[in-house]
């Protein structure tokens, strides 16, 4: 299952690029699993996801919770809490 992952703001800077395509193993079921799986790569990923509770996500154009399943997702964005307005 190939998923396009987009990174924004401080998450993007820590990881060093703004997007990539990943194929997580079957035991990566939820957004929280995905964040944990990416963090385990170490380096910038570990820095970006050091505090998973501060990471927000969107699957396509819907915001997702940590427990939201990623099955069927084509594009997932991971980012810190928004600060617009």
């Amino acid at each position: 299952m190939a998923i396009a992952i987009l990174y924004f703001a401080s998450v993007r800077e820590a990881i060093g690029h703004s997007s990539e395509t990943v194929a997580p193993p079957p035991d990566v079921v939820t957004i929280a699993d995905l964040i944990g799986w990416l963090a385990a790569r170490g380096g910038g990923y570990a820095v970006a996801f050091a505090n998973p509770g501060q990471i927000r996500a969107a699957i396509g154009d819907d915001f997702a919770e940590p427990g939201t399943p990623i099955a069927g997702a084509r594009e997932i964005a991971l980012f810190p809490p928004v600060t617009g307005g």
């Binding site: 924004f8 703001a9 401080s10 969107a58 915001f63 964005a77 980012f79 810190p80 928004v82 600060t83 617009g84 307005g85």
Partner: peptide, 9 residues
């Protein structure tokens, strides 16, 4: 907008 629009400053 401040809490739900995907912008970062």
């Amino acid at each position: 907008l401040k809490t739900r629009a995907p912008f970062w400053k």
